[in-house]
Design a protein around this nucleic acid. Structure first.
Lengths: 186, 186, 186, 186
DNA sequence: CATGAATGAGGCTTCATTCAT
DNA sequence: GATGAATGAAGCCTCATTCAT
């Protein structure tokens, strides 16, 4: 029970921080406001996380894990075109269900301040992602798998970007279907 | 000469601020540092710009104008596929020549803080951009011009995003050629 | 015409400053806001008034003149009790007609910052006022004229203070009649 | 001892701020100078008081309590005329012993800036004061108790005003005796 | 007389972080 | 593990005033 309570406060801080970073941005979220919303003292937050930057890194790592889970859901199916279809479906599902999750990730990867804090973690994540996608395209078109992978990722990133941050009303369903059509045909 | 001197300090502030916002991010750039680098007193910056936010808005508006110029370069040629090719070329050229220009734009459109400051201006810009692109696709495939436009923009945005912020080494030339091939064939 | 125009801008500054000082207080009124409301440049205001303090002193002096005029209106009548009645009437009339005029005077005489700027002028004014009132009471009760004068002034000041700054709804008419009754009977 | 130390810094801030507001005026007292004189860091003052305005409000509330105490000292005695005499004595005593206490109160109630900050508290205080005084006059002259109360308060306020802010040398003792004579006779 | 760009000190407030309890 | 008082640097902005034109 002590442990669970201990974990609960720590996790509470992470949850609240994740939400506030997504809503307000890292630089506009104060440690004080995280404490307030998490119902935790200033002393405690620094007992669990050495600095605000460390807290961000921990959150980023956690989201990386979650993104890997999403991308691995597709690996169950064997046929590469099916894998792509599943991957696309999964991503669009998440994109619509948890906008703030993706918004946060775009934020912190683009903002110079947070980028440099997370530099190594960003590297790791994108390398991992690239490898995953490339495994699939290696089975479809080994000669162009690199280019195809980059293009595939760019299309998904671009849609996410436009959906989340550029256009106020976005035909997300139409684009999802378009992507599935483009990539799931043998 | 009066005019040039008068304009010079104001413009100097804009130039320095644009660069620092791109390099460090809006929230991590202090008015004091802008003053210092522009060789201008703290008071003067507030003589010309009511607020740090106003300064950002002015910069954003200026970049919108510049983006419109870029996109209009393609309108000279008559054939729609040629227009697309020209547009893609222009964009990739700018993207490689002035990374910080695009970085800044991605930054401020994604960061919640700056987004809300610029909300109306972002709306205007993306509407304008959408209209421009759609004019071209209306001539190619009127029935699907909306979807095509969104997809086209997503691809370009995604490439820019990945190039500027995700991957450390990016095959930008290969992607450019791929895009030109995809869109310039009749 | 040049002269009148010259005077007009100068007077305009005085008028606007008087109003703003009364509405916002001296310390909360910036030279810039006076310029803006008076439609005058910063250079010009400093051409006419050496400093913000000088502007205040000039305004205070002008209001002193106006107060003297008011108090002299009563000297026409010969009987001392009539003089008091007239004086009271005049003061209550002004108090109700031009609240901000009196408010300003109370403000700047009480605020330590403005008090010290105006120290000598405040002395002069109160000495003059005291003398005027005492002339009247000398004719009524020479032995107690000093005390009577102080008490008379205190009553009027107190009513003004309470009316202008303490109570939201104040039976000003009732107090006026009470004062007239108290002092006009032979 | 923990408590005393905890309270000590907070109270120290209040004490210093009260004194400086009285001496220099609210607008001319910087938070920095309060910190300096209280031997406290800039951060701490904002740990205890959200805002400079809040600090003022707290001080004003405290002075209201003190004024209520003073006015209640008279309620012990039963006869109304005695109550008035006691009240007058008390007030003159305080007025002479702690000029800056009253000066501060006049200041902030008259300065437009501070007035609006304290608007509700001023209302409360004057309502309370009025009620207290009226209780006494209800026992003396029920038909005119309202007018008598207003007049009584005006006289005291006017004397305080003139004593503290208008005249350089003021026969305060003579006026005190005059007031006691006027109100303590049955 | 008239303008408005320019200055620099100083004001209020925020914030990450530390530390005694 | 938990609290919250305390710090001090830094941030945005305001303002009286000066001066070249």
């Amino acid at each position: 029970m002590y442990l669970s309570k201990m974990e609960s406060k720590r996790q509470q801080v992470i949850d609240v921080a994740t939400r506030l970073f997504a809503e307000l941005g890292f630089e506009n979220t104060s440690m004080a406001s995280i404490c307030a919303e998490a119902g935790v003292s200033k002393g405690l937050i620094y007992h669990h996380f050495a600095t605000k930057n460390e807290l961000l890194r921990e959150i980023f790592s956690a989201t990386t894990l979650r993104m890997i889970e999403i991308s691995q859901a597709s690996e169950a199916t064997s046929a590469p075109h099916e894998q792509l279809a599943t991957l696309i479906s999964q991503l669009f599902k998440q994109l619509q269900e948890d906008k703030s999750f993706f918004q946060l990730n775009l934020n912190i990867m683009l903002q110079p301040g947070t980028r440099s804090i997370l530099h190594d973690l960003i590297q790791e994540r994108s390398a991992h992602l690239m490898t995953s996608v490339r495994h699939i395209f290696d089975q479809i078109d080994p000669d162009n798998s690199e280019l195809c992978s980059y293009m595939f990722i760019a299309e998904l990133d671009g849609i996410a970007l436009d959906f989340l941050s550029i256009f106020d009303s976005y035909p997300i369903e139409a684009l999802k279907n378009h992507m599935i059509n483009r990539y799931s045909k043998a």
